[in-house]
Design a protein around this nucleic acid. Structure first.
Lengths: 65, 65
DNA sequence: ACAAAGTGTAATATATATATTGCATAGAAT
DNA sequence: ATTCTATGCAATATATATATTACACTTTGT
């Protein structure tokens, strides 16, 4: 699997996993696993992450086709 | 809470809760609770629902602001 | 060389999404 | 009136998202 859009966007924003985790109130591990595609996060968390990164759900989690 | 976009879209498509549930392989109850905003579904299920309804995540689950 | 920060990973515990079963009600069709 | 479909709701069971703690490795800065 390619690098996730969450990871790319987080790095573009200059945030660490820990900082993003604190912004959305989860642990660093949860962010790490989502970035690696090993988790199936809940909608609420996806929305929180998108807002924290100034993106939308489609920007981060949608793939055409 | 207003009627969810999932419910509106499902009805526009002429589907029952049971039919949509079968399309995305969950139970009728799960669809019903998501439509009523009483569940926090997983990303995978949101994606499955969006594809089943020919919509995107943003169409069904994103709210501006 | 060393310390510190960032990240991947793993084991166990906890919270919660989802399944299962069942009942109640309303509306449509007959 | 009665049957059937669609939906809301509730109790309990199961699967899994997430937390917690801990360790290893790499990179950067000093």
């Amino acid at each position: 699997m390619a690098v996730s859009k969450v990871k790319i966007t987080r790095i573009e924003k200059g945030l660490t996993q820990l900082e993003l985790a604190q912004l959305v109130q989860v642990t660093r591990q949860t962010i790490g696993l989502i970035e690696l595609g090993k988790y199936n996060p809940t909608l609420k968390l996806c929305i929180d992450i998108a807002r924290a990164l100034d993106k939308t759900l489609d920007d981060l989690f949608w793939e055409e086709e």
